[in-house]
C-alpha cells in the first residue's frame, strides 16, 4: 500500500511538473523593441548581458534592439510606438514632456553625465572661470551632442561667466582643431572622445560640469505614459532584467565586454574595454542602487533647461520620471 501511495505521489508530482513546464512554454514572450541611443557599443553593455544571459527571456520578454545614430530621434521612436522603450538623454525627456509628449523616465542608467570639457594640460585652463578669452567648442546642431551645449550654457549661467568673452565654435567629433591648438577647450564624452584623445597620447585638464553644480543624468531608460499605464507589469519586468544585466556588467565587466563584442560595430576589444571602464563610475557611483534617480537632480536639470529657455512650457517635473518601477524592482533590497 505504501508503495502504491508513494507511486501515486510521484506520478502526481510529475504531472504537476510537466503541466507547469507546459504552461510556461505556452506563455508567449512579450515582444519589446528598444531604441538605443547610439550604435551598438559598450555603452549598452548591461542590456546585451541581460539579453545574452537570458534575463529578458526569464522575465517573459523578447527584446529587439534598434540602433540609434545621426538623425535618429530616439524620443520620437518611443512616442510613435516603433519602440516601447528607449535609451536617451534626460534632456530629451524633459523637452519632449514640455512639448506635451507622453514620455517618462523609469531609470537613470548613467547617473552622472559623461559630458566633460577638456583643455590641454599645459594650457592652465583648469576651471570654467578660465574660459573667458578662450575658444570653446561646446556643441553643434541637434542630435546627441546637444548635451554639451546645455551643460556649457548652464555652467556659464551658474558661474556668471561673460559669454561675450568666450569664442564659441562648433563641436568637431574628430577634434582636429583642438589637437592643432586652434580650439582651447572642447566638450567630449568621457566614454568616447576622452578615450580617443587619451589614446592619442594627449595630457588633458578635465573640467566636469558636475563639479560646478550642473548635475545631469546621461543615459536614461524611457517609455510612454500609455505603456506605464497599460503594461506596468511588462515595464517592471523589463527594468528588472535590464538592471540585473547592468549589475552583472559592472561586477564582471570583462565578461560584459566579451558579450558586447558580439553586437558592437567596432569590434575592437581594447576600445570597448576602455569605454566600459570609463562608463563604470557613471553607472555605479558608489551611492544608491544602479538606475536610482533623485528628485533634486531632475529638478536641477529642469531648472537649468527652463532657465536656458530650452523648455518652452513649464510643467510639473515629476511628470517626466517615475520612481515606481525602481521601487518595484528594488523593493526592500538594501544593497
Amino acid at each position: 500500500m505504501r508503495r502504491i501511495a508513494c507511486l501515486f505521489w510521484i506520478v502526481a508530482l510529475l504531472i504537476t511538473v510537466v503541466a507547469c513546464e507546459r504552461q510556461q512554454e505556452k506563455r508567449a514572450l512579450d515582444e519589446v523593441t528598444v531604441q538605443l541611443k547610439w550604435v551598438h557599443q559598450a555603452q549598452f553593455a548591461g542590456m546585451y548581458v541581460a539579453q545574452e544571459k537570458g534575463y529578458y527571456n526569464q522575465e517573459g520578454i523578447q527584446v529587439n534592439f534598434l540602433e540609434g545614430g545621426q538623425g535618429i530621434d530616439n524620443a520620437q521612436a518611443v512616442i510613435s510606438g516603433r519602440a516601447q522603450f528607449a535609451v536617451t538623454t534626460p534632456e530629451d525627456v524633459l523637452i519632449s514632456r514640455s512639448r506635451g509628449a507622453p514620455l517618462q523616465a523609469i531609470a537613470a542608467i548613467y547617473r552622472r553625465s559623461a559630458v566633460v570639457f577638456q583643455a590641454m594640460a599645459d594650457s592652465h585652463i583648469t576651471r570654467p572661470q578660465d574660459f573667458p578669452g578662450k575658444t570653446v567648442a561646446p556643441g553643434g546642431e541637434g542630435g546627441a551632442v546637444r548635451d554639451f551645449e546645455f551643460q556649457f550654457y548652464a555652467l556659464v549661467r551658474k558661474l556668471g561667466l561673460d559669454l561675450s568673452k568666450i569664442k564659441v565654435v562648433p563641436y568637431d567629433s574628430k577634434y582636429t582643431a583642438f589637437i592643432k591648438g586652434d580650439v582651447d577647450v572642447t566638450a567630449a564624452f568621457s566614454t568616447g572622445g576622452l578615450i580617443f584623445l587619451r589614446q592619442e597620447g594627449l595630457k588633458l585638464n578635465l573640467i566636469w560640469p558636475s563639479d560646478y553644480g550642473i548635475h545631469f543624468y546621461s543615459d536614461t531608460l524611457v517609455t510612454t505614459d500609455e505603456t506605464i499605464k497599460e503594461k506596468s507589469g511588462l515595464v517592471t519586468r523589463f527594468l528588472r532584467a535590464t538592471l540585473k544585466g547592468w549589475q552583472d556588467a559592472i561586477q564582471n565587466y570583462e565578461e560584459a565586454v566579451a558579450i558586447t563584442l558580439k553586437y558592437a560595430r567596432v569590434k575592437d576589444p581594447q576600445f570597448q574595454t576602455a569605454m566600459m571602464e570609463s562608463l563604470l563610475p557613471l553607472v555605479h557611483t558608489g551611492e544608491d542602487h544602479i538606475g536610482w534617480m533623485k528628485p533634486e537632480v531632475w529638478q536641477g536639470m529642469y531648472d537649468i533647461l527652463l532657465e536656458e529657455k530650452i523648455l518652452n512650457t513649464p510643467f510639473e517635473v515629476n511628470q517626466a520620471y517615475t520612481m515606481r518601477f525602481l521601487e518595484d524592482v528594488y523593493g526592500g533590497v538594501t544593497k
Binding site: L206, S210, T285, G286, E287
Partner: peptide, 12 residues
Amino acid sequence: QNVTYSQSLEQG
C-alpha cells in the same frame, strides 16, 4: 562618506 568614485579626481 564611504568610498565612492570621484569623476573629477578620477579615483576613489
